[in-house]
Design a protein around this nucleic acid. Structure first.
Length: 444
RNA sequence: UCCACAGUAGCUCAAUGGCAGAGCAACCGGCUGUUAACCGGUAGGUUGCUGGUUCGAGUCCAGCCUGUGGAGCCA
């Protein structure tokens, strides 16, 4: 009985008789010779059937095979330079598990994005999409490994929350035994409590935003890892972030070099430059550079997009323009206090600036990490709650953290989908997960 | 929410206001080295919806719906 192997391990079994279990990805008939491309979730391999080498019933079964039929194929595995991937299976036996119906919707040709998203449940079978999902899994594992190996403790914070963690964002409302509750958009405030119990912590899970954002960088449900560290300043935080992000990129290149190059078609030369230290620029210096670019831009439409009002937050075009000035991810720090969340610490002697930092990925991918140092004093926080028009009552537990042993502490959130999009070089975050939730789209 | 573009066969797209078309997929047949094979054949249509202009509308006009790109919103 031949051993059942997965296609990714084919090279180790050359010269042996093996069984593959999977689906027919494509077929090319050449008269009394058939090439069947079979995929099994780990890869695709070419199998070849010769009429004279198999029993008649096997040949007849293969004649009727439709795209995506499920099969168990047995044969001799050998290296063959003519086959894509370099290995090929000479079929001796073939069992059809299930004949797929005629007219499988996803063809091996160009399709529109709208059509593909309608058929996302089938689209993920294609090698490129499957490769992206495997890379996502590696990114998530790398995130966990680095944090686990660097003194962080995982804490699972609630997804159902009693009120807006921050008042500004639109949240998904759920019915909680007759009371109003919301799906979490961040575990950060809870993490600020957790660090006083455990030291450095991180939470990792889905977060939800009900905003009407219709861009290549936004989903309504996305995954975010949020580390939080006590006795940590903004400057300490940047060092942690650059080590963390560099490790993730390095692990992905190491494990998925071939998939990145051939299936995802990513030019990995820019990824290979990702190593500490990352360039750092203050918000005010960044704004100066943006004004220079604005003045130098001759194309009126592009120029308009680069317009920046004094003290405004950067929009997507600004982030893109800035990140394109550098080869590595770029830290932008000390954003205006007014455009950041209420809990940000302010800069000593310049309260209009916050001890915040965003990490902008290269090649125009924009913000992949946002974070900063948290305000330490009760008084400042109460004042900031007022400025943001937030009631104090729901935040009493949060203010307790400053009343009982407050310390300088910092943290950040890294968006998984944006990180996958950047590392894979994708034009849109909709391909970074199996079933993305987007504005007013919830099928399949 | 705003701006722009698009909607024709299962898919990707053609068609000056004048007979509704091609490639791919499907189906039938051929081919021993194909790589989204190739060759021959068959079948496939409420031109997004509603109304209007016109002798005549896929084409022009209005509204709506859907999709895509961008902006805004967005720790």
């Amino acid at each position: 009985m031949a051993e059942w192997i997965r296609i990714k391990d084919a090279a180790q079994h050359a010269g042996k008789s093996v069984t593959l279990k999977g689906w027919l990805y494509n077929r090319t008939d050449k008269g009394k010779l058939k090439f069947l491309q079979v995929r099994d979730g780990s890869g695709v391999i070419q199998t070849v059937l010769s009429k004279k080498d198999v029993p008649d019933e096997v040949w007849e079964a293969a004649e009727k095979l439709t795209q995506e039929s499920s099969v168990e194929v047995t044969g001799n595995l050998r290296a063959d330079p003519r086959a894509p991937g370099g290995h090929e299976l000479s079929v001796t036996d073939l069992v059809v598990v299930n004949y797929a119906q005629d007219g499988y919707p996803i063809q091996l040709k160009e399709h529109g994005v709208g059509f593909l998203m309608e058929h996302r449940h089938l689209w993920i079978r294609t090698p490129r999409q499957a490769a992206i999902l495997r890379i996502r899994a590696t990114i998530i594992k790398s995130i966990r490994d680095w944090l686990d190996n660097n003194g962080f403790t995982l804490v699972d914070n609630p997804i159902i929350t009693p009120a807006a963690v921050e008042g500004t964002t639109t949240l998904f409302e759920v019915d909680y035994f007759g009371e109003s509750a919301f799906l979490s958009q961040s575990g950060q405030l809870y993490n600020e409590a957790n660090i006083f119990a455990l030291g450095p912590v991180y939470c990792f899970g889905p977060t939800f935003r009900a905003e009407k954002s219709k861009t290549r960088r936004h989903l309504t449900e996305f995954w975010m890892v949020e580390p939080e560290i006590p006795f940590c300043t903004l400057e300490d935080l940047m060092e942690i972030e650059e080590k963390f992000v560099s490790y993730i990129v390095e692990r992905v290149i190491d494990k998925h070099r071939e998939d990145l190059i051939h299936l995802v078609e990513r030019d990995i030369s820019s990824l290979e430059k990702v190593a500490p230290p990352f360039p750092r620029i203050s918000y005010e210096d960044a704004a100066l550079k943006l004004r220079e670019m604005y003045n130098a831009e001759s194309d009126l439409a592009k120029r308009e997009l680069l317009f920046l009002e004094e003290g405004d937050d950067f929009g997507a075009p600004h982030e893109t323009a800035l990140s394109k000035l550098y080869e590595k991810p770029l830290f932008v720090y000390h954003y205006p206090t007014a455009v950041k969340a209420f809990y940000m610490e302010t800069v000593e002697g310049a309260p209009h600036l916050s001890r915040s930092v965003d990490l902008l990925a290269p090649e125009g991918y924009g913000e992949v990490v946002g974070g900063g140092q948290r305000a330490t004093s009760v008084e400042l926080l109460e004042q900031r709650l007022d400025e943001h028009g937030l009631h104090h009552d729901p935040y009493q537990w949060y203010l307790d953290l400053r009343r009982y042993g407050s310390v300088p502490h910092s943290g950040f959130g890294l968006g998984v989908e944006r990180t996958v999009a950047w590392i894979c070089g994708l034009p849109h975050v909709r391909e970074t997960g199996a079933f993305p939730r987007m504005l007013e789209k919830i099928y399949p």
